[in-house]
Design a protein around this nucleic acid. Structure first.
Lengths: 234, 234
DNA sequence: TGAAAATTAATTGTCGACAATTATACTTAA
DNA sequence: TTAAGTATAATTGTCGACAATTAATTTTCA
């Protein structure tokens, strides 16, 4: 589940390494969402100076995992339902367009590779039906490959380097393990077919529906939760 | 022509001030695109320490105005035609969705304000037809208001805080002064009408066509330039 | 007792210096 | 003369300390 842009070099400076550690800690909830960040404390814990810690914090701010206020400090970003839905709407716009561009710009080799990948996932699914984890991996890989296939550096940066860390954070915090496995698989197939046909318009439409379906699925879950909470109160 | 997110506080720290100065210098071409940035030199010029300069550089990197490589240094971002077209494609996706959300989420007061704004621009245009500057201002204001009208903080951040500095930079560097003034005005009117009708689908479609038209306009110009260059070579 | 003001403590922003890495210039050998 | 290797210089990354701002505590007065 690595979504880093492969064009960028690996982390070599200590600020980079601390950034990656903090990133994982935030995404996986080891640093609680919404909590304040104490620079002296964190610097001591990671055994680095405040300067390099601040460098790491700047990178976290770049992918919207923390928020800073001048002369006040940093906080881990808060995970709200509104924020989650906003994120899905943004994904729908960006990944939809990325999918359209992928249909126009992917090479035949890239398309063939994606078809192979999907076939392999189909085999995995037949073998271990119901195990969501592999499907989750496959889902991420699929979206990742489509985004890269757009060959649009602007889109790639925005989605992979910025949005997806937040996406992963929400997935971890809200415990969402790809609940629509079988439907998602056929949706992926249709999208790849549209790309293969070089039908950019259809490819974008299908990707947007695919993401919108996930969003609506979440909205339904939320509504259900609220309903059960209400009934318990009675 | 201020696109800063009004929810964010004004610049109070010196790093913020230097960031704004550097931002203007880069956008308006006072720092040449693609040139290397010397931290000691810049720090000396602005009479600050390297620490606060690096803080400012980090903010420039956040809105993609500079690029950094570890242990090598920073460069002002390069303005290429491919980059410009990529930017317009990204805008088409994001502002299109923002426009859809604006149709769903704007208050009646916000819509009324935008209609007034457009009427005012119509008056200005009648008075001083052909002067592109006011139309340019109006164009930026229009897009800005629509984006804010989405009430989607994720979209607002991405577009206003990150993309639009690059947009302005390209406009300055390539000398594009809103060449489609009259057509753009009627397109704006139609978009506002769709928002007023709460027709999100149409609003998104029109905004995407509006931006795509600008992109195609640029593509045509480029093609024309290349053609004349070729003919001059003969 | 409660609230406002003043003082203290803690946190963030900024600075200059040193260490590590990269780029440049020079020397040496083929 | 050119190429590779080495030594020098310059640049970036990291560190600890001080200044400025904000938060917490105490004091004072109604």
């Amino acid at each position: 589940m690595f979504l880093q842009n492969p064009t960028k070099q690996a982390a070599i400076t200590t600020a980079d390494k601390v950034f990656e550690q903090l990133q994982h800690a935030i995404v996986e909830g080891d640093m609680t969402a919404g909590s304040k960040i104490s620079e002296p404390e964190l610097a001591k814990r990671y055994e680095i100076s405040r300067s390099t810690l601040r460098e790491a914090l700047n990178r976290l701010e770049k992918c919207h995992l923390i928020e800073r206020k001048a002369n006040v400090g940093s906080r881990v970003v808060d995970c709200t339902i509104e924020g989650l839905l906003e994120l899905y709407i943004t994904r729908e716009a960006l990944e939809g367009m990325a999918c359209r561009q992928a249909a126009l710009n992917m090479t035949d080799e890239e398309i063939a590779y994606m078809q192979d990948m999907l076939a392999k996932h189909a085999g995995d699914k037949a073998l271990q039906d119901g195990i969501a984890y592999y499907q989750e991996e496959g889902d991420v890989d699929f979206h990742y490959k489509v985004i890269l296939g757009s060959h649009n550096q602007q889109l790639i940066n925005l989605i992979c380097d910025q949005l997806y860390h937040l996406v992963r954070m929400y997935r971890c915090q809200f415990g969402m393990y790809s609940p629509r496995a079988t439907r998602a698989f056929t949706e992926h197939s249709n999208i790849i077919q549209a790309i293969c046909d070089r039908d950019g318009e259809l490819a974008e439409l299908l990707m947007r529906r695919h993401i919108a379906a996930s969003r609506k699925n979440i909205e339904n879950k939320i509504a259900l939760q609220k309903a059960t909470q209400k009934s318990e109160e009675l």
